[in-house]
Design a protein around this nucleic acid. Sequence first.
DNA 1: ATTTTTTTATTGAACGGTCAATCAACAAAA
DNA 2: TTTTGTTGATTGACCGTTCAATAAAAAAAT
Lengths: 206, 206
Amino acid sequence: MPKVGMQPIRRRQLIEATLEAIDEVGLADATIARIARHAGVSTGIISHYFDGKDGLLEATMRHILGDLGSAVSERRRTLGEAPPQAHLHAIIDGNFDRSQTSRSVMKTWLAFWASSMHHTNLQRLQRVNDRRLYSNLSSQFRRVLPKRQARDAARGLAALIDGLWLRGALAQEGLDVDRARQLAYDYVREQLDTPQRTQRRTSDYA
Amino acid sequence: MPKVGMQPIRRRQLIEATLEAIDEVGLADATIARIARHAGVSTGIISHYFDGKDGLLEATMRHILGDLGSAVSERRRTLGEAPPQAHLHAIIDGNFDRSQTSRSVMKTWLAFWASSMHHTNLQRLQRVNDRRLYSNLSSQFRRVLPKRQARDAARGLAALIDGLWLRGALAQEGLDVDRARQLAYDYVREQLDTPQRTQRRTSDYA
DNA sequence: ATTTTTTTATTGAACGGTCAATCAACAAAA
DNA sequence: TTTTGTTGATTGACCGTTCAATAAAAAAAT
């Protein structure tokens, strides 16, 4: 069996197995024994290729983040100077790409979010991602909106995307991708169409 | 030390200690030894009052859900026939109540969300809550919007609330409650102001 | 009022079980 | 023969639960 050049194969295999295990029993019960079984290998392999369980989990998160990055940039690649709306739609579509909306990936995302509160490695990865989403959105809105309004629109849209995604992950019936994208598109349109409002500061109307 | 009528005191104590432990090290490392230490009692007490760790965790989630329910209904109690906007703002404010926006509670919510994917007890509690939020929002929007539009507005606002809340939990700088509420208010206003649009179905514009 | 009994509250050591990591041994290709 | 890949039993650490023992208050009996 043992050939040369197994490393990339095994790594992909084990990351996939990790997603399956988390989908099956959750991160808390995704033991290395279970993950190894999913991949059809022995437990020792994990330490061999990932320096232990933590390394595998971090690699799994990096893998998902990589897919997300690709999904977004592929869609934006050909857009060039297209209007902000086109870029914003592409970012939305990328975030609701098939690679991000499978049950196992959504469950894993959720688990990593919770973990990232206490593991600085995961926290770093997650924050880079959050900021990238916000800054991408923000710079597109900025092309047609004044600074403060662009900032708020970006914050709102980022929250809306994550929220739709989160509620889809938790819902019994799963995430309805088309409907979610539509709601996000609507938000974009309203932000772009709404006439410049008078500046508001954090107010206290109840 | 032992007096009569300790049960409610200890239960509150242990739930509070659970929140502190989760805030400190996360759900995964919130051992009963650590929780007991936070509460200043021995480990045995937990099984005595909660029938084991799972019981304590479920009680903790129920406690947070109870606070959320109170926060919302207190704000709506006096509103009666007030316009939908007032009710919607009250629901928003309730969801961003102080009891729901402390660091320990936000971390705990996040941990429970992830857990609820695999523990049917927590899943049930979480779904009841999700549906309540959606149906409260939906019935208010329904007072002034046609069915489909009301449904979409409710879905969007629910997602926006959860998303703002989620991003606040994950962000380094924490949740800016005033700003979050403002963004949610804006969404409400846009949904209520926007002239009745032509009906759209799930479309495929890219 | 005093003693005895019962009830309620609490402790923490001991137990059984699980898990991640290690590493000596093995196998097949180079 | 060397390198690369793989195994899986062993090990040490840790965790939740249990339960016999203890202590103090409350209730009952004297």
